[in-house]
Write a protein that binds this DNA or RNA. Structure first.
Lengths: 207, 207
DNA sequence: ACAACATATCACCAATTGGTGATAAAAATA
DNA sequence: TATTTTTATCACCAATTGGTGATATGTTGT
């Protein structure tokens, strides 16, 4: 059934590296952090563990490369072309928060990496944090800081609280069956309630 | 120097159990979750690991008991004696959130346990979650639900977001040097900015 | 004193961990 | 073809993991 063109080599370094990266993802998804053992990773990838040392310098190097391969902020884009500056970034903020709430809930890999950022502080995780900060800087310095003037820092604090709350609730909803403040964060009903709250708070902030 | 009364027995089951619980805390504090190995725990406690199996049934039992020993919500009390119902729980909500922001930041053990709630879902962690839910239920059902009526669920969602945000930011601040939304969450300045935001959002919610 | 019991230690186990040098097999090059 | 380089496997290592039965030592009651 799977007749491959024999032209491309059977042994392929890049393909093998990809297999390892995918193995990390798979184990992370099924067993969590504690399941990330070199032996397991190699077995999952269907390759010898020695290659992990040859190609990535060890388990840490492999994990670092996996983290770097996840492009977290790719879904947050300013699609309106700068026309929204007039509202002080209100619509952009709201859209960004709501899309993050949905994105992080669906993307379990990102959840794991966010958790990593709370457990460890690897070098590779700092790249992610810096990405977030740089991404935010564009919004803050360019749009909201001028709009809120004296209260610009309070606005940053509000966004920090909401982003963090969104992360936490999404991760909590995934690993936990329990409700949070009486809301079922897995149900469409509970989630739309959170969305309403986000929208409401942004509206009030811009009043 | 340490002349102890020879009356109390040198071998003491309860004292030994306490040593194990303290060892868990110590390791959690220094090495984190991954350092919690039976051998290390026993060595840290200065006792034989066999006792962990005798007294707690194993590592999991020990950890469960450690988690149960942490009384999370002890610091959240309604000290006003019901006189604050007239304001719809506004002051209580604000005080509760602000004190949690401070408490979780200072209490690193609680941070670890909160993280645990996002990683695992142990039985013992559900007790904590239930405590939080029951604690919240008193506030919601008794005070804020009647006050907000139709919007009672939105209020719950707002509190959920703020509590979660507070947890995340506190944990983030502890394990990370980086800023969050341009705010230094370790500095008094950055933290008071968050406090202002919490206060501001609650005010707006009650408007 | 003695036994009976609770408390704690020890020696040892199999399985798994991270890690490496020698070697095989495939590809590229000549 | 023969040679060299890259890619991958294998066998093996020491250290650590969780776990237990036999044993020692302290404590209590008679």
């Amino acid at each position: 059934m799977e007749e491959e063109t024999e032209a491309k080599p059977f042994r392929n370094k890049e393909k093998s590296k990809q297999k390892f990266l995918y193995a990390v993802e798979k184990i992370l998804h099924t067993k969590g952090f504690s399941g990330l053992k070199v032996n397991d990773i190699a077995r999952t990838a269907g390759l010898d563990k020695k290659l992990i040392y040859n190609y990535f310098g060890g388990k840490d190097g492999l994990i670092d490369e996996y983290i770097r391969s996840q492009d977290f902020w790719s879904n947050v884009k300013d699609e309106s072309g700068g026309a929204l500056i007039k509202d002080g970034g209100k619509k952009f903020s709201k859209d960004m928060l709501l899309s993050q709430f949905d994105y992080v809930f669906k993307n379990k890999n990102i959840q794991k990496i966010l958790l990593w950022g709370l457990l460890d502080n690897r070098r590779s995780l700092k790249k992610l944090a810096n990405d977030r900060e740089e991404n935010g800087a564009r919004l803050f310095e360019g749009i909201t800081d001028p709009h809120f003037e004296k209260n610009s820092k309070r606005y940053r604090a509000i966004i920090a609280l909401l982003i963090s709350g969104i992360y936490y609730l999404d991760i909590y909803a995934t690993t936990n069956d329990c409700t949070f403040c009486g809301l079922d964060l897995k149900s469409a009903d509970g989630r739309s309630e959170i969305e309403n709250a986000i929208s409401f708070l942004i509206d009030k902030t811009y009043e």
